[in-house]
């Protein structure tokens, strides 16, 4: 028993001596690592100058859309530990380089000016505001691509909708003819058709939103599983929902009225004729 305790104490003492690291969830799962494990890290594949580290936590990497498809097998070290591990023996301590420096400005609105100043005063450095999303930003481009596909889908849906409403209105030709014969003016019938169209389009839009809300979970889960990421691919926001309703309801109502208008231009007797 004593030996076991001493051994555990010795291990505990050794563990406390190791610099701590965090391991990404994906790497931990791949290598079956757990908190408390001691692992050796080296700067090259041959394991030159490998050093022991203690895993103090497993973390979920911040989702990065730019790295979609590459599973983040990463560890996070304190900067001095990383420099000690990777420093070229010829490079004196304190003169190492870093790839990037993240700067939080007191006023984020100064980002453009700050980047301009750094670029002008420090040749060899490139400063970019992180919030800058120009027209060539990949996500703006992807958004535009999806918008174009949405427009084509809306055009196709509108054409089908017109075909359907023409058929449905045609089905009610006799009813409309009778209404005209008993004295209802065209405007009154059109108003009724418009209200019907708005109701049906609203119901359709709400059903579509419910379908989108239900499917967004499935789509997100599929892509998150496929790419092993916590990124969210589809999100039905209130703005998106409002845009959909704003397009679908007027379009549905307009299609109903347009189809009915063609019918109502005919004479009442011709409409009522069997």
């Amino acid at each position: 028993m004593a030996g076991a305790v001493l051994s555990a104490a010795a291990v505990l003492g050794a563990q406390e001596a190791q610099p701590p690291i965090l391991v990404s969830r994906q790497l931990a799962a791949l290598e079956r690592l757990a908190v408390g494990d001691i692992v050796e890290l080296a700067a090259d594949a041959r394991g030159t100058n490998a050093r022991p580290f203690r895993i103090v936590g497993i973390y979920e990497p911040t989702p990065d859309p730019m790295r979609l498809g590459s599973v983040p097998r990463e560890v996070r070290l304190h900067l001095p530990d990383l420099l000690a591990l990777t420093r070229d023996p010829a490079v004196p301590a304190g003169s190492e380089h870093v790839e990037a420096i993240n700067v939080a400005l007191a006023d984020p609105g100064d980002a453009q000016q700050f980047a301009r100043d750094v670029n002008a005063r420090l040749p060899g450095l490139v400063a970019r505001p992180t919030g800058a999303a120009g027209p060539d930003n990949p996500f703006i481009v992807i958004e535009r691509f999806h918008l174009a596909i949405a427009v084509v889908t809306i055009v196709a849906a509108t054409v089908f909708l017109l075909a359907l409403t023409i058929m449905l209105v045609d089905e009610r030709r006799e009813t409309v003819g009778v209404l005209r014969l008993i004295g209802l003016p065209v405007r009154r019938i059109l108003t009724q058709v418009l209200v019907e169209g708005v109701l049906i389009a609203s119901a359709g839009a709400l059903f579509g939103l419910a379908l989108a809300a239900a499917s967004q979970g499935l789509i997100n889960r599929f892509f998150q599983w496929r790419y092993d990421t916590a990124l969210i691919f589809v999100r039905v926001t209130p703005e998106v929902a409002a845009t959909c309703v704003a397009i679908a309801v007027p379009l549905g109502a307009a299609a109903t009225v347009a189809a009915s208008w063609a019918l109502l231009r005919r004479g009442a007797l011709r409409l009522a004729r069997r």
Binding site: I149, V152, T153, V155, A156, V159, F160, L162, A163, I166, M167, A262
Partner: peptide, 17 residues
């Protein structure tokens, strides 16, 4: 012709996508 044309155009738009 109206409903047939619209049906064909709808398929054309969906088919293009």
């Amino acid at each position: 012709p109206a409903r047939a044309t619209l049906g064909i155009l709808g398929v054309a738009a969906v088919g293009a996508l």
